[in-house]
Design a protein around this nucleic acid. Structure first.
Length: 430
RNA sequence: GGACAGGUGGCCGAGUGGUUGAAGGCACCGGUCUCGAAAACCGGCAUACCGGCAACGGUAUCGUGAGUUCGAAUCUCACCCUGUCCGCCA
C-alpha cells in the first residue's frame, strides 16, 4: 500500500514506477482516477468537518440553555437539518475514500532504483556458484524417487487430489532432515529466532502482507470461518508485530520459521508440474527480517547470503538472479531468486526468493518503530526469503548426486540428520 | 457448542446521554529544592486526518461496525476478543 501523500505530491513518481514494471498501460486509468478521487475526498472532508463543527457548537449551546432552563427548540431543529446534510456529504466522502483505497490496495510496490526495468527477459544473473553437472544420462527425480521409494505421487493424488505428494521411508526422513538442518543453521549460526507459527490465518493477516485482496484466488480458504491456509510463513511471521510500535534498539529482528505452504497454483496447470517441481502443499523454512529503512538494502544482501550458505553447504550449483521490475512480486521492491541446477530435468529450479518490501507491507500491517524515545513512529522495512523451499531441493539433490550404482549420495552436512550417507534401494514399498 | 462476566489513554482505573479527549493514580519528560540523589512541589505528556508558511484552528478516535439523538465512552443491534464455569476433545 502506498502513502496517500505519494499520490498527491508525486503522482509522476508513481506513474514511472508502474511503467518500469510494464504495468502502466493496464494501470493508467486507475492512476488517473486516483488523482481525481483524492481531490474529491479532500473537498468533501472539508465540507463535512465544517458542518460538524457548526453542529458541535450548536449542541454545546443547547446544553448551556437547557442548564439555564431556556428553550432550545430552534437550535435543535437547526442541528437536525445539519445532521441530514452531514449524512449526505459523509456518504459521498466515504464512497470516494472506499474507491480510493480499492485502487490503492491493488497497486504494486515501487521497485528500487537498481532494479532493471522491463519483464522476465530483463532479469539479470548477478552471480553463479559451483559447476552444474552435465545432463547426459541423469535420471529425472521422479524416476529416482520411484525407484528408491522416496515419494508416492499416485497415492498423494488418491488422498488429496492432483498436486499433492506423499513422502515415504527415506524420502520422508530426508524432508525432515532438511528442515531440521535449515532451522538449526539459521538459529545457531545466523542469529535467527526460531518460531513455529499457525498455518491458518485471518483475512486481516493475509491483507497485511499483500496476498489479499488481489490474489484471493491463489489461496486455499476456509470459508465457514473466513480463514486462509498460508502460502508461506512470511504471512504469519510478518504479521506477528502488526499494529505495534517497536523500539529502535530491537531492530533488526530476524525470525526463521518452518511451515507447510499451501498454494492453489490457479492458472499454472501443466507448467513445470511434472514430479515434485510444483505442488499444492510443500515445506519451507522462511526467513523474515524487520529493519530500519536506512538498513534494509544491506539487510537484503545479508538475508540472501544466509540462504546461499545453505546451498553451498549442500554442494548444489546455483545462480542468483536479480528480477526485473516486471517480474518482481506485487509487494516486493527488489527480489533475488536463487535457482539450483537440476541436471535430470536440465533446468534451473527456483528454490529461494529473497525480497525487501520497503514500507509496503509495514504500511498495510501498520508495523512501526520509534527511532528515539521522543520521536514519532516510522514504518519499518520488512524482508523475507526462503531458506529453503523443499521439494525442489529434494529434486535437485536426487539429480545432482545420482550415482552409477543407482544410489544417491547425500552431502556430509545431512548425514547426521538423515541417519545415512546415501539413499539406496530398499525393500520395495508395497 | 452453552452460560455468565468483561473490553476506557504506555499501565491501573473513574465515569450510565450535555464544557469528558476523557477525573485520579503510576510510569515517563522538564523544572524548583539539594553538594548530589531521594522525597516533596510546579508544569508537560495520545494518534490520525483536513486547512494554514507558521502560530494555530477544525474533525475523528473509550474492542470493531451499524443505529437512535440537536448531542453517545454512556442507550440499541450485530460482530470480534478476554476471563470463569459446563460440554467436547488431540
Amino acid at each position: 500500500m502506498h502513502d496517500l501523500k505519494l499520490v498527491r505530491e508525486q503522482p509522476d513518481a508513481l506513474r514511472e514506477a508502474m511503467r518500469r514494471r510494464g504495468a502502466l498501460d493496464a494501470l493508467a486509468p486507475q492512476l488517473d482516477r486516483l488523482a481525481s478521487l483524492e481531490q474529491e475526498r479532500r473537498a468533501l472532508i472539508q465540507q463535512v468537518e465544517e458542518q460538524k463543527a457548526a453542529r458541535n457548537a450548536g449542541s454545546a449551546e443547547v446544553a448551556r440553555r437547557k442548564k439555564g432552563g431556556e428553550n432550545a427548540d430552534d437550535l435543535i431543529a437547526q442541528g437536525r437539518a445539519l445532521g441530514e446534510s452531514i449524512a449526505a456529504l459523509e456518504a459521498r466522502a466515504t464512497a470516494a475514500d472506499d474507491a480510493l483505497r480499492a485502487i490503492l490496495i491493488e497497486l504494486p510496490n515501487v521497485t528500487l532504483p537498481d532494479v532493471p526495468e522491463g519483464g522476465e527477459d530483463a532479469n539479470v544473473v548477478v552471480r553463479e556458484w559451483g559447476t552444474p553437472r552435465r545432463a547426459d544420462g541423469v535420471q529425472p527425480h521422479w524416476d529416482v524417487g520411484a525407484r528408491l521409494g522416496l515419494f508416492d505421487l499416485e497415492r498423494g493424488v488418491k488422498v488429496s487430489g492432483s498436486g499433492f505428494v506423499v513422502y515415504r521411508g527415506q524420502g520422508a526422513r530426508l524432508v525432515r532432515a532438511l528442515l531440521n538442518w535449515c532451522l538449526d543453521v539459521h538459529a545457531a549460526e545466523h542469529g535467527y529466532e526460531e518460531v513455529w507459527p499457525p498455518a491458518v490465518v485471518t483475512r486481516a493477516t493475509m491483507t497485511g502482507t499483500g496476498q489479499l485482496p488481489k490474489f484471493e484466488d491463489d489461496a486455499y480458504a476456509i470459508r465457514d470461518d473466513d480463514l486462509f491456509l498460508i502460502p508461506t510463513a512470511e504471512v504469519p511471521v510478518t504479521n506477528l508485530y502488526r499494529d505495534e510500535v517497536l523500539d529502535a534498539a530491537q531492530l533488526p529482528m530476524a525470525f526463521a520459521a518452518y511451515t507447510p505452504c499451501f498454494r492453489r497454483e490457479a492458472g499454472s496447470a501443466g507448467k513445470d508440474t511434472r514430479g515434485i517441481q510444483r505442488v499444492h502443499q510443500f515445506d519451507k523454512v522462511e526467513l523474515v527480517r524487520y529493519s530500519t529503512p536506512e538498513d534494509s538494502a544491506a539487510q537484503l544482501e545479508l538475508l540472501t547470503g544466509h540462504a546461499e550458505t545453505l546451498l553451498q553447504r549442500l554442494g548444489l550449483p546455483y545462480r542468483v538472479k536479480l528480477l526485473a521490475a516486471g517480474d518482481t512480486g506485487f509487494s516486493s521492491a527488489k527480489t533475488y531468486d536463487l535457482e539450483v541446477y537440476a541436471p535430470g530435468v536440465d533446468k534451473w529450479l527456483e528454490v529461494s526468493s529473497c525480497s525487501v518490501f520497503t514500507d509496503f507491507q509495514a504500511r498495510r500491517a501498520n508495523i512501526r518503530y520509534r527511532p528515539a524515545p521522543k520521536d514519532k513512529p516510522r514504518f519499518v522495512h520488512t524482508l523475507n526469503g526462503s531458506g529453503l523451499a523443499l521439494p525442489r531441493i529434494v529434486a535437485a539433490l536426487l539429480e545432482h548426486y545420482q550415482q552409477a550404482d543407482g544410489s544417491v549420495a547425500l552431502p556430509p552436512v545431512l548425514h547426521p540428520y538423515a541417519g545415512t550417507d546415501a539413499l539406496r534401494p530398499a525393500a520395495a514399498a508395497p
